[in-house]
Design a protein around this nucleic acid. Structure first.
Lengths: 211, 211
DNA sequence: TAGGTGCTCAGGGGAATCCCCGATTGAGGT
DNA sequence: ACCTCAATCGGGGATTCCCCTGAGCACCTA
C-alpha cells in the first residue's frame, strides 16, 4: 500500500501541480486550501504524511499542526514554504512538524523527503537545519530587546557574567577590572532595568536567554 | 586552503584510522585522546571543525564542547559516537555540537559530513534527527534528572524559589518557615549538587528549566 | 573651552549569603 | 527499643552583595 499523503496549500494552482507530480508514487487522499478544511480533512482521511504550507490565513500551518497533533499524534507533517526565515522554521518545528523544505525543491527531492518523513526521519533544506540547532542550543538571542539598548557595552559584559552565576570577584578577574568597578556596573544595570538585586537580574537574563 | 580538522577520541587506533582516511582531503591540525588535551589543543590550533568522541573519561565530549565553545564560538563540532541513544545526542546538541553521526559511518560519508558542517549545515545520521526534533518540540519530558532524586521534597521547594530569584527571607515567608531553615535546606542542596553558591544554583536550575 | 558620558576605582555601612557548630521533633525501618 | 533521616530552628562568623558618595581619566559634542 502506498503512503497516504494529504496536501494543504492556499494556492490552488500550486496544489494542483504538487498533486500531479506526486500522484504516481503516493496516494493523495485529500487536499485543502484553508485551515479549517485542512483540520477536518486530515482527521477524516488519517493520512501518513501531511504536506502543509506555512503561510495561510487564519493561523497558517502552525494552527493546522496544533489542531491535529493532539488527536492524531501519529500523523507526520512536512512543512513546505517560500520562506526560509528562522522564525517560521522554528515555529513549525515547535508546533510539531517533522520537516521543513522550501518550495524551490524539485519533485524528486520532495518525493524523497516524503518517504523519509514517513520512515520517521527528519528532513530539512540544508541551510535550515542550522536554525533549528541554534534555537535548540539557545544560541539565538531571539528578539532584540529594547531594554538592552539602554545598557552600555561594559554593562552588558558584566550582565552576562552575573547571569551565569559568577561572583563579583570572579567577574572582576575575568574582565580585568576591580571588584568596585563591577559593583558600579551592576548598580547601573539594576537601576536601568528597575531590578533590586542580582538574583532578579539573573532571572531577567535567563528569561531572555542572555546566557 | 583545506579545512582544518581536529580529532578527539580516546581510542588511539580509531584515531589513527580516521586520520589516515581524512588526511587526503583535510588538514588534520591535531589530535587528542582525553578531555584536557583536547581543550588545550583546540584552543591552540583553532580548527574549523572538531571531530569529537562522545564517550570519554572526565566528562566526555560534552565537557570538551562546553570548555571550548565559550572562548571559540566559531569552531564547529561534529560528534562521533558508537551510541545512538537520545540522551547522548541531545546532550551533545545542547552543549553546542552541530552534528552527530555514529561510528558505523563510511569514510566518504564522514568526509561529506565534515564538509557540510564546515559549510554551516547540520548533519545527522538519519535516525537521530528525530530525537532532536522531539526534544525541541517538548515531546520528550527530557530525562528525569537523577540529580533531583537525591533532593528531598522540601529541598526541591526551596530550590524552585531560590531559582526564581527570591531572597531567603522571601522564601521563608512563602513556605512559612524560618530563615535559618531555608539556610539549612540551601546548604544541603548546594552540597548534594556540588555547587558553591545560590547563583550557580540558579543557573543550574535554569538549564534544567526548573522554574 | 565647557559639558556630557562611559569606564575606572575607593571607603564605608547595612543587609544578605554561606558555613560551621549545635538542637529538637516526628515518621519510618531494624 | 534503637537508629536513621527529614524537617525544623538557633548562634556566630566570614564573606559577599548592594548602595551611597566621591573622584580621576578619556572621548565626544556643542
Amino acid at each position: 500500500m502506498s503512503t497516504k499523503v494529504f496536501l494543504v496549500d492556499d494556492h490552488r494552482l500550486f496544489l494542483a501541480g504538487v498533486r500531479s507530480e506526486l500522484a504516481d508514487e503516493f496516494s493523495i487522499v485529500g487536499t485543502a486550501h484553508d485551515v479549517d478544511a485542512a483540520i477536518d480533512g486530515i482527521r477524516n482521511f488519517k493520512p501518513d504524511v501531511v504536506l502543509i504550507d506555512v503561510h495561510m490565513p487564519d493561523g497558517g500551518g502552525v494552527a493546522v499542526v496544533e489542531g491535529v497533533a493532539e488527536t492524531n499524534p501519529d500523523i507526520k507533517f512536512l512543512a513546505l514554504s517560500v520562506s526560509d526565515s528562522a522564525e517560521d522554521v522554528i515555529a513549525m518545528i515547535r508546533a510539531g512538524a517533522r520537516g521543513y523544505v522550501t518550495k524551490t525543491i524539485g519533485p524528486e527531492e520532495l518525493a524523497d523527503a516524503i518517504r523519509r518523513i514517513h520512515a520517521g526521519d527528519a528532513v530539512f533544506s540544508p541551510r535550515l537545519a542550522g536554525f533549528v540547532l541554534d534555537a535548540f542550543a539557545g544560541a539565538i538571542p531571539s528578539t532584540e530587546d529594547p531594554e538592552m539598548d539602554q545598557l552600555t557595552v561594559r554593562e552588558k559584559d558584566v550582565l552576562r557574567l552575573i547571569a551565569r552565576g559568577f561572583a563579583y570577584k570572579q567577574v572582576a578577574r575575568k574582565l580585568n577590572i576591580s571588584i568596585k568597578t563591577v559593583e558600579t556596573h551592576v548598580s547601573s544595570v539594576l537601576r536601568k532595568l528597575q531590578l533590586s538585586n542580582r538574583h532578579e537580574l539573573a532571572r531577567w537574563a535567563s528569561k531572555r536567554r542572555i546566557v
